[in-house]
Each structure stands twice: as structure tokens, then as C-alpha cells.
Design a protein around this nucleic acid. Structure first.
Lengths: 137, 137
DNA sequence: TATTGTTATACTCTATAACTATA
DNA sequence: TATAGTTATAGAGTATAACAATA
């Protein structure tokens, strides 16, 4: 596969990642915490499910949620069918912050893509669709 | 800008970032250390220039290079024109490891993009070209 | 005085190993 | 026994503030 393609993928990745870092850091959050807010927007997963989404060890997620809970962004709950399971959901304040940051991400990433043509932007959406069909994520 | 586009950018970014993390971790390296090896491939920058490339504080780069030097991947040198300046360059071993990992990155990222059409892959290269012309990086 | 780089410090993120509670 | 989650521990990565050496 052409070298310029791999380069492009890497440059794109670092640029978007940097935009995410910048947005998150306006609220003293990491990109991982930003992802947590995004994941919880329409889910109330168990710790294990959250770890799977993030592809992190459960012990890492324990610490992550400790810190997010301390900041009042999320709360731990219990699942009724299995007393071992801990669920995580957004607080109102977490949902509000998540929505704010999502808007900022839209703005920041949108800015990065503003110079591309509409056709090329559509190609990006198709690429990710193809990735998903193959990669399983 | 369409929501699916921003989503696609984020999903793409996390997928590539994860592939880079996976490759780097086969050698107990972070993505940042992997980037250092890539940056030094055809440059011998000062600490300040390296910090600019990585968009990190100089103190962060001091620690990064401490660890890379301890592993024998890079060496610090001096610039003849200014005794304050410290330069960084790859050792032979660092260059070799960098080449190995670059091949793995090509393979891993190439795999992610394998399902996309050639036309769409070309669009990605154009998108990054447009980003570069605007964004300054 | 200004700049380059390092050090001290503090915190987040991450994994591994050992543990507790529940199934 | 097996699974869900936490805790203890260790190390990397990052920034801020204070510093030393050089310009």
C-alpha cells in the first residue's frame, strides 16, 4: 500500500487527536475522559462493558470512573440481576458538559476538514464504513 | 458539518491510534516514543524543535529523551554555534528499531484501509493535503 | 535580560497481580 | 470454581514553576 497513504492516515490521526486533546483540556479532561462522556451519552454500561468499549483493563477503568465520579460527571449504580455488576451513568452535569464538549469537537474537527471537498469528505465516511464492516469495531 | 462526518473522523482516529499503540507496545514503547523515532529518521533537531514537532512542553521532552537514551535509541549531542542547544539523533539501534516498527505500522494501518476503494483512499490523501495547506502543520 | 534545557513536583493514565464479593 | 470489580503498586507521560548556563 502506498506510503503517502499511510502517512496521510497518520497525519490525519494526529491532527484529530490533537484537536480532541485541545477541547478536552479546556475542562482539564483527558481524551479518555472525553470518550467516556461520549460513550455514556446513550448507554448505561457495566464497568466491564465500558472497559471493552475503551479497550482498557478494568483496573484502569476503575480509576477513570473514580476520578470522573469525584468531579460529579458520572455515578456508579447497581444492576438488579447481578449484585457483582456496577453500572455507570452520566449525571445531569456530566451530560451537560458532554454536550458542550461535543459541540466544540464538532467545531474543531469540522475546521480541520473545512478545506476538503464535499466529495472527499464523503469518501472518508465510506472508508470508515468499510473499516467497520471488516474490523469488527 | 454533517454529524456522520465528525463521527467518521473520530472513529478513524481511534482505530489508527489503536493500531499505532499496538505496534509500539510490542516493544514496550508509547505512541509518543514511536513518533520520536519517526521524526528523528531524517532530522537531528534541538530539544526545542522536537518539542514543537510533538507539540509538547520542553520539560516533557526532556523526560521522553531521558528514557529513550537510557534504552539506547537516541543520543544527545551539542550544537557548535550555541552552547545552550542540545541536539537529538538516532543511534544505529534506534534507526533499526524505527525501520522495523515503521514496517509494522504500514502493515497494521494498511490492513485497516484494505477494505476501502482505491478512489476513497486517494481522497484521504487529498483531505490531508488540504488540511496541511490550511492548518499550517 | 532573554533563551535553552533540566529538575522538582504533582497528577493522570495504564497494566499486572492480588484481593473481595457474588454467582 | 469462575466472574465482576477494586486496590496496591509501579512506571510512563504530561504540565507548571523554579532553576542553571549561555547568549
Amino acid at each position: 500500500m502506498a506510503d503517502s497513504l499511510i502517512d496521510a492516515a497518520a497525519v490525519f490521526t494526529f491532527a484529530v487527536h490533537e484537536a480532541l486533546t485541545r477541547v478536552a483540556s479546556t475542562q482539564q479532561l483527558s481524551v479518555t475522559q472525553l470518550r467516556v462522556l461520549g460513550i455514556l451519552r446513550d448507554r448505561t454500561p457495566s464497568m466491564a462493558e465500558l472497559a471493552d468499549h475503551l479497550r482498557l483493563d478494568r483496573s484502569s477503568v476503575s480509576g477513570l470512573i473514580d476520578r470522573a465520579e469525584k468531579r460529579g460527571l458520572v455515578v456508579r449504580g447497581t444492576a438488579e440481576h447481578d449484585a457483582r455488576v456496577v453500572t455507570v451513568r452520566l449525571t445531569d452535569s456530566g451530560r451537560e458538559l458532554g454536550a458542550e464538549l461535543e459541540a466544540e469537537v464538532d467545531r474543531g474537527v469540522g475546521e480541520l476538514l473545512a478545506a476538503a471537498t464535499a466529495e472527499d469528505r464523503e469518501a472518508l465516511v465510506r472508508i470508515v464504513g468499510a473499516m467497520r464492516r471488516v474490523g469488527g469495531s
